[in-house]
Design a protein around this nucleic acid. Structure first.
Length: 721
DNA sequence: CAAGTTTACCTTTTT
DNA sequence: GGTAAACTTG
């Protein structure tokens, strides 16, 4: 396959794959075969230039992109690909820190704090300092601290200047908290590695020796620290960066577009290659994307040209309100599905996560299989964090946040007052939290029994080798399913139990995928990834996601929704003058579509509590979809009378639906089993019902058995006990 | 002092 | 329409 490159690739792609320049800048427009170029180049380096796979580092921004690259390379070069270093900036840096962090006093017992927990810490500090959280919201502090940690000042051990009230003080306390709980945050993963590289050149040299060839995806999204990291290990080595200034959508996270604009000044022997031939979409779609992005001033400038002779369809509809918008979309989807019964590839895109709700409701009602991607990350769900908190305390006995959480869930007669005292004892005496529970003398006689049980749990965990057993044991020991049933209604309890089961599967998958895994690696992975299961098969599933999450993906049919002023472009952004980034976001959204692109807006929308009207998005005018003087319906689209949708009978949706029935729709009958029921089986013995599957003809139940763990069983074989 | 109940606040976008 | 902090009760 590498022998036929001239045929398989266009001229620019070919040049990019075989170039011998030490530094290579590839400007790759949307859909121009960027991933193909990177993977082929890696394969080419190995096969033709005899580069050892272990000397190649490929960096991506998302886990999705990393795993995609891994699998593509596996199909290109087979098992050779396993020696490649492929990962996100964060996972690569965390690995470096785990291996060599002791050079800067970060030993491998440090755990990663997640965003929610950071907020908890900041809120507490702000309260302690008596800062008015109305005028100075905690999020602001988080943002400034994060911003500061992405500067060289932090790398050089300095402190932030007082941008907002008492920022330096808040920062100090935040760092203290992190240190005493042995935490690093997301920014530390990168900054501390850079700090280490400056402090100890021998460590840096070690990695310069390993990473002889560096390839970076989405280079336009790199921030100062990331580009510093790259230049440190990349100087004198070979570096190839791929990016598109028009798709830079992470400016709010510190991405510096200057990195890609100044690449030729930073590196030596630079060659620049531009890819503009688009293999994804019909020209019609590319035209309106080109139209929009041309309104941006701050860009290098390029125009996408379609290489495919696809007859693309574009349609714009404006509806009275958000409910009708979603009804319209679902109706369209139903006709599309009927047309392409064997295979369909549909995505609904929106500016912010909260917009997904309406679509979920309508899709559920219509019985169309769908999946919301990335809304709340799996590992941030309450039930998952509850169980993980025990594992975290087990692993890091200074983790006060998980300590507090695990002590309070389930309730054991120990509250914040007592816990505060124990934590204080731990921090003043440097004793770990579990020992402090015993030593501090804060536990009353009445509480002692429960505390003993709590401590016993951790002793018992010691005797278990696998992560899955530990999870099982925790769930059972604290009677978590009962806890869920007690506090949640049956539907949410069901969902939560499902998630616990998924957590268990994630542990199993993790233990199977890596050799010699330990709990710490598993816990790190929960901090670094947002979903539990690896890429599942989403064929014939309608995908719902934010535009940000859609970057790098492509779909046959795309619904770009909520095209209204204030929503998209977002009012937050345009106030800050970031309209250009919003426009790039729009460009990203439009270029996801291959054959069909639907644009929708609602004249009126319910935003938490209030109904408000907004005019259609300026982007529609920039695309050329709407004339600039009126808010008319689309010129390419067929106008639908809103009233015809108003009269639409929703009950008919559920009856005439096809075979794509969502299993989550199952309702609970009184004579069947429910979640958390105690059951027994002739062979497997006693167990607890984890979830119920009524999608098939007969009811199947996932049961956790004391003897053999999880099994899916026909409910007719089970008895109540 | 812990558990249960009500109110307030919320919203960009993500590793 | 969901969750976390504030408030009230036991």
């Amino acid at each position: 396959m590498l022998d036929n490159l001239e045929v398989e690739l266009n001229k620019e792609q070919y040049d990019a794959v075989v170039s011998k320049n030490r530094s290579l800048l590839i400007i790759a427009g949307a859909g121009t075969g960027k991933t193909r170029v990177i993977t082929y180049r890696i394969a080419y380096l190995i096969k033709k230039y005899d580069v050892r796979p272990g000397n190649i580092l490929a960096v991506t921004f998302t886990n999705k992109a990393a795993s995609e690259m891994k699998s593509r390379l596996y199909s290109l070069i087979g098992s050779l690909s396993t020696a490649l270093h492929i990962g996100t900036f964060h996972s690569i840096c965390l690995n470096i820190l785990r291996t060599d962090g002791h050079f800067i006093g970060v030993d491998d017992s440090y755990s990663v704090i997640d965003q929610d927990d950071r907020l908890v810490i900041i809120k507490r500090i702000i309260k302690d300092l008596g800062i008015d959280d109305k005028r100075y919201p905690p999020r602001k502090y988080l943002h400034y601290i994060s911003e500061f940690k992405n500067t060289m000042s932090y790398v050089n051990y300095q402190k932030p200047s007082e941008t907002i009230l008492k920022l330096a003080l808040v920062y100090d306390r935040y760092q203290e908290q992190l240190n005493s709980s042995r935490f690093i945050d997301f920014d530390d993963m990168l900054s501390l590695v850079v700090r280490m590289f400056y402090k100890d050149s021998s460590v840096l040299e070690k990695y310069q020796e390993i990473y002889k060839h560096i390839l970076v995806d989405e280079y336009q999204d790199t921030n100062k620290i990331q580009s510093t990291f790259l230049s440190l290990i990349g100087k004198g080595n070979n570096i190839c960066v791929v990016g598109d200034d028009d798709q830079s959508i992470y400016g709010w996270r510190g991405a510096e577009i200057a990195n890609i604009l100044n690449f030729d000044k930073e590196y030596e022997d630079v060659k620049e290659i531009k890819l503009v031939e688009n293999y994804r979409a019909g020209q019609k779609i590319l035209d309106i994307a080109n139209n929009v992005i041309e309104y941006n001033i701050n860009r290098r400038g390029k125009k996408l040209v379609s290489a495919k002779d696809i007859d693309a369809e574009i349609r714009y509809e404006t509806l009275s309100n958000e409910a009708l918008e979603s009804n319209f979309i679902i109706e369209e989807i139903k006709t599309l599905i009927l047309k392409d019964t064997d295979y369909f590839d549909i995505a609904i895109l929106y500016r912010k996560n909260s917009q997904s709700r309406n679509f979920e409701i309508s899709l559920n009602r219509a019985g169309i299989k769908h999946k919301v991607i990335g809304a709340i990350s799996f590992y941030q769900r309450k039930e998952v964090k509850d169980i993980l908190s025990y594992l975290r305390v087990y692993e890091n006995r200074f983790d006060i946040l998980s300590f507090r959480r695990s002590l309070k869930i389930p309730t054991r007669g120990i509250g914040d007052g007592t816990i505060d005292k124990v934590i204080l004892y731990s921090q003043t005496n440097g004793v770990d939290l579990l020992h402090s529970l015993v030593d501090s003398g804060c536990i009353s006689k009445r509480q002692q029994v429960e505390i003993d049980k709590y401590l016993q749990l951790f002793i018992k965990l010691d005797s278990m080798v696998s992560i899955r057993d530990k999870i099982n044991y925790i769930v059972e020991n604290i009677d978590y399913l009962l806890y869920l049933r007690q506090y949640d209604d049956i539907d949410t309890a069901n969902k939560r139990v499902d998630n616990i089961a998924e957590l268990y599967s994630a542990a199993v998958a993790f233990e199977e995928s890596v050799e010699g895994v330990n709990l710490r690696d598993f816990l790190s992975s929960t901090s670094l990834t947002s979903s539990a299961t690896e890429e599942q098969d989403l064929t014939n599933t309608v995908k719902l996601m934010t535009i940000h999450a859609s970057k790098g993906l492509e779909f046959d049919t795309v619904f770009l929704t909520g095209l209204e002023e204030g929503l998209f472009p977002s009012s937050q952004s345009s106030d800050d003058g970031d309209i250009e980034e919003e426009r790039r976001l729009c460009y990203v959204a439009l270029t996801r579509a291959k054959r069909r692109l639907y644009l929708t807006s609602a004249r009126e929308r319910l935003t938490y509590g209030k109904r408000s009207r907004s005019p259609s998005s300026i982007f529609l005018r920039e695309m050329g979809m709407v004339s600039s003087n009126t808010k008319s319906s689309g010129m390419l689209g067929r106008s639908i009378l809103d009233s015809s949708i108003d009269k639409f009978d929703v009950s008919s949706l559920s009856t005439n639906s096809n075979s794509y029935i969502s299993s989550s729709l199952s309702k609970l009958d009184s004579d069947s089993f429910s979640v958390a029921d105690k059951v027994s089986h002739a062979v497997f013995g006693d167990g607890v019902v984890l979830s119920i599957d009524r999608s098939g003809e007969s009811e199947k139940v996932v049961v956790h058995f004391k003897s053999t763990g999880q099994k899916k069983i026909l409910s007719s074989f089970l008895n109540r006990r």
